[in-house]
Amino acid sequence: MGKHFPKKRETLSEYAALENAYLDGMREILSEVAARRHLELWGMRSNNPHIRKANDDSSYAIECLHSSLNENQHELYGFMEEAMNAEQGLEEEEAFVVGFLEGYRFIKELQRSGGGLTLV
Rank of each mutant, 00 (worst) to 15 (best):
Y15A: 09
M26T: 08
L90R: 05
L18P: 00
E87R: 08
H74I: 09
L18E: 05
N72T: 14
L119P: 00
S13P: 04
E91H: 10
F5G: 05
L117Q: 05
E92R: 13
M26F: 14
L119Q: 07
E93S: 08
R52N: 06
G115D: 00
E63V: 14
G43F: 04
M26L: 15
E102F: 13
E87T: 12
R45E: 14
F5Y: 01
A17R: 08
K3M: 09
H50Y: 12
Y60F: 07
A54Y: 04
M80R: 13
N55F: 02
M84N: 07
A16I: 11
G114H: 02
L110P: 05
G43L: 03
E92S: 15
Y15C: 10
N72L: 10
N70A: 11
E92N: 14
L110F: 13
L101A: 00
E81Q: 12
C64G: 11
G89V: 02
H66Y: 09
L101Q: 04
A17E: 08
A61G: 06
N20D: 13
E94N: 12
L23K: 12
K53P: 06
F79P: 11
R112T: 10
G116D: 01
S59A: 08
Q73D: 08
T118R: 00
H4Y: 06
E94A: 11
H66M: 14
S46K: 01
P6D: 09
L23N: 12
E75H: 03
G116C: 00
D24N: 06
P6N: 07
N55R: 07
E94T: 11
G103Q: 07
I62E: 10
K8C: 09
L76S: 15
I29E: 14
M80A: 10
D24M: 05
K108G: 00
E28A: 03
G99D: 09
N20A: 14
L101I: 01
Y77P: 06
L119I: 10
L90K: 08
L117E: 03
Y15N: 09
E82K: 15
Q73G: 00
E94P: 11
E87G: 06
L12I: 11
G25S: 00
S113K: 07
A21V: 02
M84K: 12
L119M: 06
F106H: 07
A95F: 01
E109A: 02
L18M: 09
F106W: 11
L117S: 00
W42N: 15
I29R: 14
Q88W: 10
A35D: 09
L23T: 08
R9N: 10
R112G: 04
